[in-house]
Computed example of a mutant assay.
Amino acid sequence: MTALGLLVPGEPAEDDYPRVEQLLGSDIRIDLIRADPAGDSPQRLAACTEELRLAGADSVVWASVTGAVAEGWEGANGQVRGLARTAGLPASSTAFGFVRAARELGVTRVAVVTAHEDPAFTEFLRAGGVSVVSTTPLGPDLAASAHPAAHADAQALLLPDTSLRTVTHLPALERQLGKPVLTAHQITVWEALRLTERRVNAPRLGTLFTREPIVQA
């Protein structure tokens, strides 16, 4: 059994994680703990990570893009190092997961669709070697909003909002666009698995879960 420990900000869309768990197979478990590494006290954060460790987590990921990129690339690195020290486990964040997933897919240019445009996220991606060629506001129709990712210069579409339920839409979006789609909950779980050195073939979770690694990060 591989147990993935996720520190989540607490949003209704987090019911996507049980859906991911079902698609991964019976030997992978996803444990969620609500916490804010940027705002919680050290005592609260230590209690959260200790709870995950005692539950048998093999890795820890801070599952908030906004919370991770607010302090820039170096600040996000410091945040992850702090989580690793507190948890005594390999640690990362969803923000770093986006960068590593792009590298694994050989992607350097992306389109972003988001409900809340965040220049800090664009700068974070740039620091990781990924350029944003277009940013489009999220509309009521996810598929229609994703259409700008068909832009010839974009090699993939990013949906970084943790407030979106996206897991069930991944196969249809990738068929529509003809390119990889990377979403917050999908990336969070992939990054947690990467930390445990697990590779899982799960086509219903998108191209990222069917590709052999291009690079090791």
Rank of each mutant, 00 (worst) to 15 (best):
A35T: 01
D40M: 01
D40H: 00
S41N: 02
P42A: 01
P42D: 04
R44Y: 07
L45Y: 00
L45A: 05
A47E: 10
A47N: 08
C48Y: 04
C48D: 13
C48W: 03
T49L: 14
T49P: 01
T49H: 07
E50K: 05
E50R: 00
L52E: 07
L52F: 13
L54H: 06
L54P: 00
A55E: 08
G56V: 10
A57N: 10
A57H: 02
S59A: 15
S59Y: 03
V60F: 12
V60W: 03
V61P: 02
V61R: 01
W62A: 14
A63V: 11
G67C: 04
A68L: 03
V69L: 06
E71L: 11
W73P: 13
G75W: 06
G78Y: 08
Q79C: 08
Q79A: 09
V80I: 14
R81Y: 13
R81I: 11
G82E: 14
L83T: 00
L83G: 06
R85N: 15
R85Q: 15
T86W: 15
T86A: 15
A87W: 04
L89D: 01
P90E: 11
S92N: 15
S92W: 05
S93K: 03
S93Y: 11
A95M: 09
F96L: 14
F96A: 11
F96G: 10
G97A: 10
G97N: 13
G97D: 11
G97K: 04
F98K: 02
F98G: 01
R100M: 15
R100C: 11
A101M: 10
A102Q: 14
A102L: 14
R103D: 07
L105G: 12
T108M: 04
V110Y: 01
V110E: 04
V112W: 00
V112A: 04
V113K: 00
A115D: 14
E117V: 09
E117P: 15
P119Y: 00
A120T: 06
A120P: 10
F121Y: 11
F121H: 11
F121A: 14
A127S: 08
A127D: 04
G128C: 06
G128Q: 04
G129F: 01
V130F: 05
V132F: 05
G139W: 02
G139T: 02
A143T: 11
A144N: 07
